[in-house]
Each structure stands twice: as structure tokens, then as C-alpha cells.
Amino acid sequence: MKITETDILLIPGYGKPLPGHWILRWRDKMPTARVVKQTELLAPVKKDWLEKLVEDVEAAERPVVLVAHSLGCILVAHGAHVLKDKVRGAYLVAPSDWDRPGLVEGFDGGDFKPVSRDPLPFPAHLVASRNDPYCTYERAQEFADAWGATFQDAGEAGHINLESGHGPWPEGMMSFAHFMKRLG
């Protein structure tokens, strides 16, 4: 499947993505990509975030491919059952483990926990780091297995965000291109 034949919805996680974050760079590089703009980035509510994602999916004019980071991955897992008709696939990067107590100071995961373990009704690929402070490598593998996603070891890449040195993240773009090709 070609990027130009799809609407790419980029789903950031908890907090505002900083300028230079790979999600914002991908938005600028792919003409059919746009960021799902959530409200309450530091006190997210699953219902509100899911309503906004569904709205953006329904507004798409082409088949949709989701690209999610961190809490965005968990949102996709929770909402997959209502997204399945237009979504062709999901590329999931560095999911955060909100079932883990004290993951982020000031936010306990709210209604994003427990993290859904239901299989996704569309193809998915999960990229995980061996030293992500927000999700152990083993837990990320468990998510991939539960969701029916293929799994990619990103090595010691932290949370695969700007703070861990992943602004442009060219390896991610190459991996995403392979995922798109797999979608046919």
C-alpha cells in the first residue's frame, strides 16, 4: 500500500510532542499525514481521546493507517473495535505500560487501565526498546502477542522520543515503509 493512497493518522502519547519529535517530522514529510490533536494532554480521558480519534478516522477520505506512540498505542488497543471498518493497519511505537503503578508522576493512567489485551482486528506492527523507562521489553512483547502484532526490537532506544535522541528517527521511517508494503 502506498502512503499517498492512505490517510496516515499520527497519534501522540501523553503530553505534548516537542518540536523535532519524529511524529511531527513524519507529519511534515508525508503529504497525507496529520496529527490527531487531543485535548487534555496531561490529564487524558479515554472516552474523549477515543471520540476524537473516531472523528478523525471517520473524516478520512482514504483507507486509514494509524501511527501511534506511547499512550497513543494504548488508545488504539482500547478503540480498535470501533475503528476496524476504515483502518487498514496500525504501526505502534514504544507503548507505555499504564498498568504499572507510578508510571508518570501526577497521572495514574486513569481509565486507560487496565490496558486492553484484545486482538486487534487489523494488521499491526509494534516497535519496542530494550531500555524504555515506560514499558519493559518483555511487557511490550506481551502487548504485541496479545494484539496479534508483529514485533520489532529497536535495541536500546529509550522511549523512542526526542529525549532519547529520536528526532528524525530514519530507522523508524524505513520500518514504517516496510509495514506499508506489507499492507499491500
Results as ranks from 00 to 15, higher is better:
G167T: 02
L24G: 07
Q152T: 13
P119V: 04
A77Q: 01
F176E: 01
R182W: 13
A59M: 10
G110L: 10
A60N: 06
K113A: 15
P31L: 05
F112S: 01
E138V: 13
P44F: 04
A80G: 04
G13A: 03
N131H: 07
E142S: 13
H159N: 00
E51I: 09
M174G: 12
A146D: 14
P121F: 03
A157F: 09
V87Q: 08
L75R: 05
L53K: 06
T39G: 14
R100C: 07
A80P: 09
G172K: 00
H125M: 11
K37N: 11
E40K: 02
V76F: 08
Y91T: 06
G102D: 10
L24S: 13
D7A: 04
Y91S: 07
D111K: 03
E163R: 07
L71D: 03
N161T: 05
K47P: 06
A77L: 01
Y91D: 06
L66W: 09
A90H: 08
L103E: 05
G79R: 04
P17I: 00
A80R: 06
L83W: 13
H166L: 02
L83K: 10
N131W: 08
E55W: 11
L162M: 09
L83D: 07
V45P: 02
H125Q: 12
T39M: 07
K29A: 12
F179K: 06
F176D: 02
K113E: 08
L18M: 14
T6N: 10
I11P: 04
A80S: 13
F179P: 02
D97W: 12
G72V: 00
T32Y: 05
F107M: 00
G172F: 05
P114D: 02
Q38K: 00
E142D: 15
E5M: 08
E156P: 12
D132I: 04
P12R: 01
P168D: 15
K113P: 05
I8K: 01
A43G: 14
K47G: 08
I160M: 10
A146Y: 10
P17E: 00
K29N: 07
G102F: 03
D48Q: 03
L75C: 09
E105D: 14
M173I: 13
K181C: 09
W169H: 06
Y91N: 02
A177F: 10
R34P: 09
R88F: 06
H166N: 04
